[in-house]
Simulated scan of single mutants.
Amino acid sequence: MPGIISYAVSLPSLRLPASAYVENWGVCEARGLKQKAFCAYDEDPVTLGIQASKLALKRLGRKFPKIDALFFGVTTPPYEEKPSAATLPTALFDYNDIRVTEITGSPQAGIQALIAAIEYCEALPNRYSLAVAADAPVGKIDTHFEHALGAAGAAFVIGPGGGVANMINSLAITQESFGARFRRQGEERITDLELRTQGNLASVTAIGAKFSEIKGVGVGRIAIGAEPAVVRAVNRVFGLPEAEVISLWSQIGDAGSASAPFALAAAFDKMCAGDTVLAVGIGSGATAGLFKAEKGLVSNRGTGITADELIGCGRMVKYIEYLKHKRVFSI
């Protein structure tokens, strides 16, 4: 049975404290945010994806397997035409006979890429795939929702045996959401009607109802990429009052399609063999995967940095430097 055989996360090098918005705007509109990770002028989702992938492959040792397919989940790729996903294998491997699929258009894309990579290996036994989720959503600097926008990356190597974790179920719901953020063709920055919390709550409630139909499944953790108002409702809507909810939103910001995969990796950092985690990506619906940790998890994570450790490694900057990296001012 194919599953996850290695994983890793990445973050940009810079951090902005929520207090910077209070000092310069009088308030931080991202309630619950403590700090966020953001891309420097020379970083983007592709560089974050490459970094996470290199770390995940490194955890497998010097002789990691040949990757047959790569699935990239991202909402803000550098190019509208020209697959950004093609840059990843060029940077990672010395071969080009690899299938590349780019999944975009929704913050669900990261979890969708992970599930697609697993299903690829289920359909083609004894092959290996790489699922990469990386994102850095961008909004107009004078909008309220921009305060929350962060950046992150996560990568998962999929192969026979699934020594780290196996997916035991997946589910999805799709629904139009009036409050969902969007980015029209030709636009660099997203637009948000600032009703997103209502839409996300509706999506979480709908997939929670779908999950309740699955009988006899114990879940110890829920990894989700969502704002605090949604996170507070998760235990109730999934009917899992004792499950630990893991969301790094308050520490890294809204990392788009990478939010849920990053939270999943953070959950793996704390799990033991036999533990379970439900990873949920949200955006005009929701996609979820239920994973069970295997015996190889502890040894795999012991060879790299944890998500919590990585969060603490960044350099805090002042708001004026943040604006320079956002190209509001010249560097």
Rank of each mutant, 00 (worst) to 15 (best):
F72R: 02
A8P: 12
A206D: 00
K270L: 14
A148V: 12
A133K: 05
F145P: 00
K292D: 00
S212T: 07
G296R: 10
A52V: 06
A91Q: 14
G159F: 03
A85F: 09
G49E: 03
V138G: 03
R236T: 14
G199E: 09
D275N: 13
L171C: 04
S10P: 13
F71W: 10
L248P: 03
A229L: 11
A30N: 12
N300K: 05
S177D: 13
K215E: 11
H325K: 08
G225F: 03
Q112V: 01
L201W: 01
G186M: 10
D94S: 14
I103R: 01
S212G: 07
F211H: 05
V46S: 02
F238W: 08
K210E: 08
N96D: 14
G218A: 11
N200G: 13
H147A: 05
T197N: 13
G26Q: 12
V22K: 13
G179Y: 06
I50S: 00
S10D: 04
G3E: 01
P89G: 04
R196T: 14
G289Y: 00
T143C: 04
R62P: 12
L240F: 08
E294W: 07
I115H: 00
A91S: 14
A131W: 04
A117Y: 02
R15Y: 13
Y41G: 06
G153T: 07
G161T: 10
S84P: 07
F71I: 09
L323W: 07
D94W: 08
A209N: 09
T75C: 12
D254C: 06
G163H: 11
F178N: 04
A286I: 00
K66Y: 09
P125K: 14
F329C: 01
R196N: 07
G179E: 09
E43I: 03
R31T: 13
P65F: 10
V204I: 15
F211E: 01
L124Y: 10
V237G: 01
T205K: 03
I331V: 11
L240D: 00
A134L: 06
A56V: 14
I67L: 09
S170K: 13
R221F: 12
V164Q: 05
A260F: 02
A40P: 02
S330V: 11
A136T: 06
L195S: 09
A131K: 06
G150A: 06
E43W: 09
G32R: 09
F72W: 05
T87K: 15
I282T: 05
A152M: 06
R184W: 14
R181G: 13
S259L: 03
V204K: 00
S259K: 12
K215T: 14
G161S: 10
A113G: 03
E294R: 14
A307T: 13
W249L: 05
G150S: 08
A154Q: 10
L33N: 02
R15P: 00
K36L: 15
K66H: 08
H147C: 08
A152K: 03
A209E: 10
Y21T: 04
L193D: 08
I305R: 08
I252V: 15
G283L: 00
S84H: 05
N200Y: 14
A117Q: 04
V317C: 11
K82Q: 12
A154W: 02
A117T: 05
F182W: 15
E321Q: 15
R15W: 09
A155M: 05
Y322V: 05
I246W: 01
R99L: 15
K292E: 15
A172V: 02
T306H: 08
